[in-house]
Each structure stands twice: as C-alpha cells, then as structure tokens.
C-alpha cells in the first residue's frame, strides 16, 4: 500500500488539472496554462502525461503505457509501475483492453474506440516555438491567428529540399482555428488524430494542457501542390507481414543488414498470434525448430 493519495496527486492539484482538461476540450487545440507540479520523475520524462493520467484515472480503469509504440521500453515500464503502486489500477499491454492509454511518440495502430482515452506526453507544446522562442510573442500569434511564419517555414523547406522537411511533430490545424503540435508522433500517425476517443495532451515542464474531443477536425498543414503525405518505411513488417503499420528499422549485424518490424509491439504480437507471418518470422520459426 501507499501513503500517498489515490493516483499520487492531492485532490486540490487534480481539481486544478481537471479544470484545465475541461477548458482544453472546450477550446480544442488551445494550450491551457496549468500549475504543473514537480513529480517524482524528471521533467521531460512524461510528467505532463502522468499528471493528466493521474487526474483522469478511476479505480475501474485499465491502463496501458507505451513509449515509441512499445509497452516494454524502460520509461513505459516505469510509468506503468508508478500507477500500479499509486492508483492500484489494472494495467495491460493489450490496446483493446485499455480504457486509458498513456503514450509517448505514437498513436496505436488499432483504431481506438469512443470509450477509450489517449493521453500524450508532450515535450514542447508550442508548434511555433522553433520559429519564435518567445512565449509572449507566440501567445499573440495564436490570439491573432497569425500563422504565416509556419507556412513560410514549410514553404522554405519545399524550395530548399523539394518537400516539407518535417517528419514528426508535424503541425496540424484544429477545427480551422488553432495550430497545434500533435507531440512528436511520426507524421504517419497524423491522420489518426481524427478519432472516436478523447485525446488529452500534457506538457509538464512547459505547464500546458490541451485536448481534442472525439471527431474533431484535424488537418495537417500543407500546400495544394505539395499535399501532406503520411509516410513510413517502404517495407512490410518482417515479423507479422503488416504492410500498413509504422515500422522500426533494426540493425541486425556488424555488416549493417536491416530488418523492419512494427513499432506497435501489441499490434505486431496480435497479428503473429493470429497466424500472420512476415518474411523473417518464417526463418525464426525454423531457428526455433
């Protein structure tokens, strides 16, 4: 048992966070300032997501935590354990069993349902930050809907590289109003931002919470002649054969030969169990035999 309050945070803090979440849902894409607390894990390691999850969880929830799409990466393990101890919630690695999913850098491959909540860990919530470092300025730009700087940046990419050179944390416009950072998910995941589940974004160090209600219109910024493209490695998963999932590239040996495998570990395992096998899975099976 634990001497701390349910889900670690005190009730006053959770109340403050809950109010910020509600404002975020009422003004989709707008970054609501909140008095982020110092958590027992470092800033930059998911303190925003952890605070949002702590304010959201009930004892009946089943929690899944992923980092880079994987349930077994060390920080995902650490955060999952934190909530097992402080909130006593059931945890799972199975996307469909989870009612609350906290994620860093990915949206699960399985389509989320309307009874699920996706909580993102966000490092830099301000999509304009790398174009204008000052909060006082970017706040004005959002107020005046002055997003020209962002379009200029994307256009300069095109003139220099022939393509938009942003591959993750690709900016989106929400309901035709706020430009929003979807957190550092690969742009492959951007089309999934329009979904049935509630999406909550927490940035602890930067003290911001924002949100997307279900079915909110989310457009990736682009140009008519250079339309947005959700890209991934041009391969199928070598383990489960999936052709439509986001892939990690794994270096296999000293000669640098590669294989490609789903970043969503639960998705990949589920497919393999259902009998789908990729090019190298057959080799694995032979090895085992």
């Amino acid at each position: 048992m634990t001497d701390y309050n349910f889900a670690y945070l005190d009730e006053q803090t959770k109340r403050m966070i809950r109010r910020a979440i509600l404002k975020g849902l009422a003004i989709p894409g707008y970054q609501v300032p909140f008095a982020s607390r110092e958590m027992p894990m470092p800033y930059g390691w998911g303190t925003g997501g952890v605070q949002v999850s702590a304010a959201t969880l009930t004892p009946d929830d089943t929690l899944k935590v992923i980092d880079q799409g994987a349930d077994d990466t060390t920080n995902a393990v650490s955060i999952r354990k934190f909530f097992e101890v402080t909130a006593g919630v059931t945890t799972t690695e199975n996307t469909t069993e989870a009612s609350v999913i906290q994620t860093r850098h990915r949206i699960p491959e399985a389509e989320l349902r309307d009874d699920q909540i996706l909580v993102y860990q966000v490092p830099i919530p301000e999509p304009l930050r790398f174009l204008e470092p000052r909060e006082t300025e970017t706040r004005k730009m959002h107020a005046l809907e002055e997003y020209g700087l962002m379009h200029v940046k994307l256009y300069e990419d095109i003139s220099q590289h022939g393509a938009i050179a942003t591959s993750y944390a690709y900016p989106v416009k929400v309901e035709g109003r706020y430009v929003m950072d979807p957190s550092p998910i690969p742009k492959f995941d951007n089309p999934k931002l329009e979904m049935s589940a509630i999406q909550l974004f927490g940035a602890g160090r930067e003290q911001r919470i924002y949100a997307l209600p279900p079915y909110t219109k989310v457009e990736s910024l682009d140009f008519e002649d250079y339309p947005f493209e959700a890209t991934k490695a041009d391969h199928a998963c070598d383990m489960c054969g999936a052709e439509n999932s986001y892939l990690d590239e794994v270096i296999m040996d000293d000669q640098g030969s590669r294989m490609f495998v789903c970043s969503d570990t639960d998705f990949c395992a589920g497919r393999q169990q259902a009998g789908h096998l990729g090019a190298l899975a057959a080799v694995n099976a032979e090895d085992a035999a």
Binding site: F6, A7, K14, L22, L25, T56, L57, I198
Partner: peptide, 17 residues
C-alpha cells in the same frame, strides 16, 4: 479521491461529447 475521479469522468465525457 474516488468520487471526484468518477464525477470528473462523467463531466469530461459530457463536455467532450
């Protein structure tokens, strides 16, 4: 702590939908 959490989920679901 528990009733606040459950009430919040009801309020959030209502506002998000």
């Amino acid at each position: 702590p528990i009733e606040n959490a459950v009430a919040f989920r009801a309020a959030m679901n209502a506002l998000a939908r």
